[in-house]
Each structure stands twice: as structure tokens, then as C-alpha cells.
Design a binder for these strands. Structure first.
Length: 214
DNA sequence: GGTACGATTGTCT
DNA sequence: GACAATCGTACCT
């Protein structure tokens, strides 16, 4: 509506129901300033995660050292290590004391393609520009976000968010979430921009069993 | 103190 | 489409 999109400057923007924030994050541009370059990504795919009432959430079993940021003030980044190899980035939402966050799953690099390519090349193989931030771990690498960014403030310096309303979006079950948390009826909490090539592929969650059975 | 498992990705068939 | 890589956390004994 008003020329170049303005960054979010009020914490109240994040202090809303997680699904509401998730929808507003679609199309928003996240810009990160780092020593080795500046990269901005337009978000095309996100997932909402709740607290004690969401079996798919890291916060489902209560507060721990890893997920503490999820229970804190909204507008901060929750970054965690996954499978010993990858990092995933979330935006904390809702009031402090109540855990909820939006996982940033994919986006299109709109600034700093060279820097993003260099970072991704250092960790893996880059085939296409569209794949630079296609997937949560790839997105984290492209933006230069690391585990030390756990707790970083989106209202602070170096990391800023500029929302842009999108005309419409689609929703469905979350990627790789097994059990009740992956139920498309109860938790259709994956949101994405339709027909966008930077959206990652859907993969159902696989439920393993702790004890072998027949 | 031990171990199964994961909000993933890249490679190989 | 299937599988290995790789390690902190949660859960069990």
C-alpha cells in the first residue's frame, strides 16, 4: 500500500494468536545483516506451533533448556538444532509464558543472492537459485542464522521483518509431523503461497515405535 | 547411565 | 523412492 514495506517496530505485532501471525508472515521480508553479507528472504511457507495443547510442538512437554525461548517474550527467534546437522528458525508469538512460534520453512531470496549462494555452497551443493531457501534448514543457512541466534530480537539491530499482505494462501498438515500433531483435521497449520516454486515439498510424518512389536 | 528418536537434506538407485 | 549422516534431548532403567 505504501511504497517500500516498513519493518515491524512494535512487539504487539507478535503478541497475537500464532495462526494469525503465521498468516501475516507469508509474503513478509526477513532481512538479516551479517559480516559476510546482507540477505533478505520473502517468506513463502511457514508452520504454526502451539504449546501444551499441540502434540506436534517442541513445547508440548513443557519448558526445557532447548525450547525456553518459545515460552518467553514474543518477537524473538527460536533456533534449534535438528538431527545433529541442521538448524531451524522460528518466530516466537503470543504472550510471554505461553509457548507458541512460527517455523519459517521456505522463501525466495530477494536481496543478497550472492551471499546466500556462498553460504549454501560452503555447506552443500547449490543447483538452482529457487532452492537457496527452499526448506527450513536451507533458509537458515541462506540467511546466515546460527544456533547463537536463539533468542535474538526481531525488533533489534541486524534482523528486521517487513510484512506485506498477500492476496491469498493455502493451508494443510505440517511437514514431517507424526501422530496427532500431523492430523490435517486438527492441525492444518502449514501455510504457503500457492503456486510458488520456492515452497518446499510435502512429506508426511513417520511414526516409529519405541518398543518393537510383532 | 543408556538409548531411541527427530519441525531435514543430499545422494544414490 | 529409499537411506545415511550425526548429536542433543527426552525418556526410561
Amino acid at each position: 500500500m505504501s511504497g517500500p514495506s516498513a519493518r515491524v517496530t512494535e512487539r504487539a505485532w507478535f503478541d497475537r494468536p500464532v495462526l494469525e501471525v503465521a498468516a501475516d508472515l507469508l509474503g513478509a521480508v526477513l532481512r538479516v545483516v551479517r559480516g559476510d553479507g546482507v540477505v533478505a528472504v520473502r517468506l513463502t511457507e511457514v508452520e504454526a506451533y502451539g504449546g501444551a495443547d499441540d502434540p506436534g510442538s517442541h513445547a508440548f512437554r513443557g519448558r526445557s533448556a532447548r525450547n525456553a525461548v518459545m515460552f518467553g517474550e514474543p518477537g524473538h527467534l527460536y533456533v534449534y538444532r535438528h538431527l545433529g546437522l541442521h538448524r531451524c528458525v522460528n518466530v516466537v508469538t503470543g504472550p510471554a509464558g505461553q509457548a507458541s512460534a512460527v517455523l519459517l520453512r521456505a522463501g525466495q531470496v530477494v536481496e543478497g543472492v550472492d551471499a546466500a549462494t556462498a553460504r549454501r555452497s560452503a555447506e552443500g551443493v547449490v543447483r538452482r537459485e529457487v532452492d537457496l531457501a527452499r526448506g527450513p534448514a536451507r533458509l537458515a543457512v541462506a540467511l546466515g542464522l546460527v544456533l547463537a541466534d536463539d533468542g535474538s530480537d526481531l525488533l533489534g539491530k541486524g534482523i528486521e521483518l517487513a510484512p506485506t499482505r498477500v492476496t491469498g494462501f493455502r493451508s494443510g498438515p505440517r511437514v514431517g509431523v507424526a501422530g496427532p500433531g500431523g492430523d490435517p483435521e486438527r492441525f492444518p497449520w502449514r501455510l504457503w503461497v500457492p503456486d510458488d516454486p520456492t515452497v518446499s515439498a510435502f512429506r508426511p510424518g513417520v511414526r516409529r515405535r519405541r518398543t518393537p512389536d510383532g
